[in-house]
Design a protein around this nucleic acid. Structure first.
Lengths: 234, 234
DNA sequence: CGGGAGATTGACTGATCTCAACCCGGGTGG
DNA sequence: CCACCCGGGTTGAGATCAGTCAATCTCCCG
């Protein structure tokens, strides 16, 4: 049993892409082992907006939707977390309540690290601190882009952009469909529009031969044109 | 001369609200003195989107507008920096090019700290690292709110919200007007709408006795109602 | 006094949202 | 086995918020 925990811990924390890769053996050793990685089924809510989360989560497997709930109950998807991503570090650092909720879209395997542990590392391991800072700054840059896009682009442009991003962030299955499957409503909650608008635009894109649709599964056929429609810079 | 620099440096870096307050005397001593604080006149562009900024700026005085330029040239104001705020740390940390531009709205006095210096401190002074992290996380939380608001709220709600925020973030002059003065276009670029829409809504608010207008100067008369209109939570 | 920037107003347009009806496939219970 | 139900997904029609265009106004400045 002890052995198993150690193995799992290793997988979780020493992986080359992990933010914990800068920790020394000694530092790794002090991570309390009661924080055993856990499996979460699709639909599980890992934490909710307004709750206290006393540490942060490292995703080993699966896809998690991170979203805010707006004034009228409509959700706004902020981002997805997948293998290698961390969640909840904002609240961990600021000691505030969670400003987003996290819900499992694809069965996940997730580690939890207690806030005290994290703060300890931030203070005593400069590389770890820098790593966290870089993650925060990367998200900040993306958030700024997002703000500008939502404020200035049309729904059509934004939907094209979302498709491009999904394409970039997620793998394809063996039929070249995007591995991530979202309801039309979820797509709408990413774009910031009504479900019906997404449906209409998707079928327009399909008409134009840019994408293929099979239920919730989406295949990108003409990324170049989508890119042009999205008016992205890079 | 040397004396003057030292005084200025002290003001700049040892102030109680400065992010440098956690630095030791020795650490302060190694900040190169070629980074003398400088005065910037209204209208000056401190850095532009896409440029390399090899360090970050600490605002001692004045107001700086931080914005992104969208696809069609329209600017989106992300935030304002004022006394005690820092700018450009995102690029400093990620080593990427600036993703925003910064323009002086009110004559400013600003220190510059070289990236190497900052990174050195992040690595070797845990409290400094934590401080930076907290700043980044705070901004991140605000960005997430912003995204949700722009995506879901009406222009009217957003304008009310912007006014509330301005009220919270800036002092009032002796006639109780907001000290920050923005053009209608700048207001529009905060809200994410057209100039004409801002004008129409402002005069509506004025009709309803919520605000008073004197050219660009705005006085908040009925914060409570504005708050209700904005549909803010907290 | 002429010029220019920003502010204002009105009229018109149109992209999106909302509402409502209907479809479709899967699961459930009688 | 069938009827029903329910959660999406689609489609159409109408309503509307907000953007665009254009004309005018108001300062302020050289």
């Amino acid at each position: 049993m002890k052995n198993q925990v150690t193995t799992v811990k290793k997988e979780c924390f020493i992986d080359n892409s992990s933010i914990f890769r800068h920790l020394t053996q000694e530092e790794l050793a002090i991570i309390p082992i009661d924080q055993e990685p856990d499996t979460y089924k699709r639909g599980t809510i890992i934490y909710s907006e307004g709750s206290r989360i006393n540490g942060f989560y490292c995703v080993q497997k699966g896809i998690i939707k991170i979203y805010k709930t707006g004034f009228d109950g409509k959700e706004q998807i902020i981002r997805f977390a997948k293998k290698g991503d961390i969640m909840g570090f904002r609240s961990t650092i600021t000691r505030e309540r969670a400003c987003t909720s996290a819900k499992v879209l694809e069965d996940a395997f997730i580690c939890f690290v207690h806030a005290d542990t994290v703060l300890e590392f931030v203070k005593h391991n400069g590389n770890f601190a820098l790593e966290l800072l870089q993650i925060a700054c990367k998200e900040l840059g993306e958030a700024n882009d997002y703000i500008t896009d939502i404020a200035q682009k049309t729904v059509r442009e934004r939907l094209a952009e979302v498709l491009i991003h999904l394409r970039k962030d997620f793998d394809l299955d063996n039929e070249k469909y995007l591995q991530i499957t979202l309801t039309r409503e979820e797509l709408a909650n990413m774009v910031g529009t009504a479900t019906e608008s997404v449906i209409r635009l998707l079928s327009e894109f399909k008409q134009d031969g840019l994408i293929e649709l099979h239920g919730r599964r989406i295949k990108i056929l003409d990324e170049k044109t989508l890119f042009k429609i999205s008016n992205l810079n890079d």
